[in-house]
Design a binder for these strands. Structure first.
Length: 424
RNA sequence: GUGGAUGUAGCUCAGUUGGCAGAGCCCCUGGUUGUGGUCCAGGUGGUCGUGGGUUCGAAUCCCAUCAUCCACCCCA
């Protein structure tokens, strides 16, 4: 069809069987997150653009070319959030939570926006479920956070995942390493394809992200960051890995795992799908001990992650659903009405049923046959039929669609009878 | 930003060398005066993505454009 309006590139409509899948996942996740001590936080989708430029980093791809930024009527520079960590930190400070004792643990679920070229598992409006644990510098918390991410995957039966872990240092050891790496790369500039050279000046560490063989071969000749960590980072990293062992969370150390956001320090991790070429990175996270202070708050350590919901669902082996049935919403009781007076009688008579189950009163005026057909399509267990005769007698015809039995039921017996059929 | 594939009925797709626009599913009606899931008969539904060109004639060939999907880059 040649439609007048179409959805924007990289956005999707979620409905019918797909939204049911989302609800199922979201329910499981909320349960798990509560068990790990997280409370929900919902922050605005629009924020000041500066929040992300400073926290995520203005040399990153996200800020450089993927932000949906625009000017408000008042001339303020705004943007649709490309991620949620910075917003949570902003909210943490803005709501005066810095003096709260203990670790504050928030989870979020919601849409993020990045102006990328869409492809399988990548959308311009996509959704993440994530957590932020603010207020503890302990490596044990890092491990718990990683375990939390895995628990979320397990809750929706996601299989075949690998946890990649790395430590990218802190302000006392990272700068020296980065400077050394930069020097090394500049000395070997001719071995680096032009497409990657730009990153050397802005963030040399991100060369490790490249999948290019020449780049990787060159980097193999340079010591990894894990060999240049200061004693404190070294110990922190060992504690994280040791705690993961204690918890029985399998992981793979990956010294090339640097993440695309500036605020990460020390622990970084990623959870990837082993099989399939699609977008294999399902989740990413790490520690960001400097971010709260950078946003104007007191020096406060924190760690978190986010999971891509679309990618997770894509990764789940989804059993095919009947394409026709999946286009109708399930209902328990379907009320077929012969004419408009019957519709009115049916609607009123069935009002009480809604306290017990779901009810659809058909007001299309189609043939009873067509209405009964819809009842079947909607997977109804009971078909109630109303016409002149039922109105006169003060009854409804009640048909059990599983057995095919049909009996007239008096209006005042309707609720009890429907309950019997549904429970029996 | 770069590369590849695909656009035909609500859905999934055929369409030969350029010669009347097709199938299956769905939907509607009837078979069954007021009853589904099976069956039978009939029916509705199309600017062939859009614009231009070649041609007696274009879904088909050419050009442009838009959209979708996939991949790169990067990331969730």
């Amino acid at each position: 069809m040649n439609l007048k309006y179409r959805r924007l590139k990289g956005t999707r409509d979620l409905l019918l069987e797909e939204i049911e899948r989302w609800h199922w996942c979201e329910g499981r996740w909320r349960e798990v997150l509560a068990r790990y001590g997280y409370g929900e936080i919902r922050t605005p989708i629009i924020e000041p653009a500066g929040l992300f430029m400073r926290s995520v980093g203005d040399g990153t791809d996200i800020v450089e070319k993927e932000m949906y930024s625009f000017e408000s009527r008042g001339g303020e520079s705004l943007c649709l959030r490309p991620e949620n960590t910075a917003s949570v930190v902003r909210a943490y400070l803005e709501n005066g939570l810095t003096r709260q004792p203990g670790t504050l643990k928030f989870y979020y679920m919601g849409p993020m926006f990045r102006h990328d070229r869409p492809q399988a598992g990548r959308y311009r409006q996509f959704h993440q479920v994530g957590v932020e644990a603010i207020g503890s510098a302990s490596p044990v918390l890092d491990a718990e956070v990683i375990q939390t991410a895995m628990a979320l995957f397990e809750a929706v039966d996601a299989q075949g995942l690998t946890v990649l872990v790395n430590c990218i240092g802190c302000p006392s050891c990272k700068p020296a390493y980065v400077a050394g790496l930069k020097k090394f790369l500049e000395e070997n500039l001719e071995r680096i394809p032009p497409a990657f050279r730009g990153r050397i000046g802005t963030n040399p560490l991100r060369l490790y992200d490249a999948k290019d063989d020449e780049v990787l071969a060159l980097l193999a000749e340079h010591p990894p960051i894990t060999s240049a960590l200061c004693p404190a980072c070294r110990e922190h990293h060992a504690e994280v890995l040791g705690t993961l062992d204690d918890l029985g969370v399998p992981f793979v150390e990956d010294p090339s795992l640097v993440r695309g956001l500036d605020y990460y320090g020390r622990t970084t991790f990623e959870i990837t799908a082993v099989s399939g070429r699609k977008q294999s990175s399902l989740a990413g996270g790490g520690r960001y001990d400097g971010l709260v202070a950078q946003c104007g708050g007191p020096q406060t350590p924190a760690v978190g992650f986010s999971i891509g919901i679309e990618r997770t669902l894509l990764h789940l082996a989804d059993e095919p659903i009947d394409p026709q049935r999946s286009r109708q919403t399930q209902v328990d009781v379907y009320v077929a009405c012969l004419d408009e007076p019957s519709q009115r009688y049916g609607l009123v008579a069935c009002d009480l049923l809604r306290g017990l189950c779901s009810v659809e009163v058909d007001t299309t005026g189609r043939s009873v046959k067509a209405q009964a057909k819809s009842a079947n399509l909607r997977r109804a267990k009971i078909l109630l039929t109303v016409g002149k005769d039922e109105i006169a007698a003060g009854t409804l015809q009640l048909k059990n669609l599983e057995t095919g039995d049909q009996v007239p039921v008096a209006r005042d017996r309707l609720l009890a009878t429907v309950r019997e059929v549904l429970e029996g």
